[in-house]
């Protein structure tokens, strides 16, 4: 069995090598991807269109904002699906896992986490809010925020993390994140533009069309951050406890 599965792997590997024989030179400015009108527009006009210095954020949240909205929805679906599969409403007595041992949380670990978690959370806010000018944005900020809760769950136990962020609140926050993202899109539609045409928000914001895009991108990133934070933690909480939401790792 193992050897038969090697055949398609080698075949696909061969295909990939064959394809790479015709690649443009690495970093070639004449290659289609570098010289196409789309990438030249991104490079030359991002600042003009949106006032955002970080081109990647502008492409992600504005030019291709619809993709990013759907990516957020994908994250939401992942959380939903894991909950739907694992969540057990029958309230049967749980089976104890073989390796489970009950020890007190370690003093050194917990105290370190106590120090580290606030720093991580503040850093995640920074990453989220500073995504316009430096690497970062909603996804990374949200993941960092979710990681801080996972850290609490790892060093004490799941209950302690869940008292701070109950699973139902997770799903509410996740849904609100999408609602915020799509809501900004619908608001710009109601103001006369297309879906996600942030420039139309100038009618309600006291700024220019370009700055309206800039600020709407922040709103959108916050929505992404909400969803990602909540789902990352919900995923961990459900997967580590088979959906029972109790006990340590």
């Amino acid at each position: 069995m193992k050897n038969t599965s090697l055949i398609p792997v080698v075949l696909v590997g061969f295909l990939l090598f064959y394809a790479s024989t015709d690649f443009p030179e690495w970093g070639d400015p004449q290659s289609p991807a570098s010289s196409s009108p789309v990438s030249s527009h991104f490079i030359a006009k991002t600042g003009v269109d949106t006032e955002v210095p970080n081109m990647v954020t502008a492409v992600l949240a504005d030019y291709r904002g619809f993709d990013t909205m759907l990516e957020t929805v994908v994250v939401f679906i992942a959380g939903m699906a894991v909950l739907a599969i694992l969540r057990n409403f029958s309230r049967k007595k749980p089976v104890k896992r073989g390796h489970e041992v009950s020890v007190e949380p370690d003093l050194i670990v917990t105290n370190t986490v106590r120090l580290v978690v606030p720093v991580i959370q503040i850093f995640s806010f920074y990453v989220l809010a500073h995504g316009h000018v430096s690497p970062g944005g909603g996804f990374q900020g949200g993941v960092l925020m979710g990681a801080s809760f996972i850290l609490i769950a790892l060093s004490w136990d799941l209950e302690r993390a869940l008292t701070r962020f109950p699973i139902n609140r997770c799903m509410v926050v996740a849904a609100l994140g999408i609602l915020l993202y799509a809501g900004i899109g619908v608001l710009s539609m109601a103001l006369g533009g297309e879906f996600l045409d942030y420039a139309e928000l100038e009618k309600v914001l006291p700024v220019s069309r370009e700055m309206a895009r800039y600020h709407a991108m922040l709103g959108v990133e916050i929505g992404v951050g909400f969803t990602v934070t909540a789902i990352m933690f919900a995923l961990y909480a459900n997967l580590s406890s088979r959906g029972r939401l109790e006990g340590g790792l």
């Binding site: 690497p135 996804f139 993941v143 990681a147 996972i150 995923l235 580590s240």
Partner: peptide, 22 residues
């Protein structure tokens, strides 16, 4: 790179380990 570090090296490893414990 930032996304890869947070998601790939960070969260997904934790989630994988948490799942394998079960």
């Amino acid at each position: 790179a930032f996304t890869e570090a947070t998601v790939g090296a960070g969260i997904s490893t934790v989630v994988l380990v948490a799942t394998i414990f079960n």
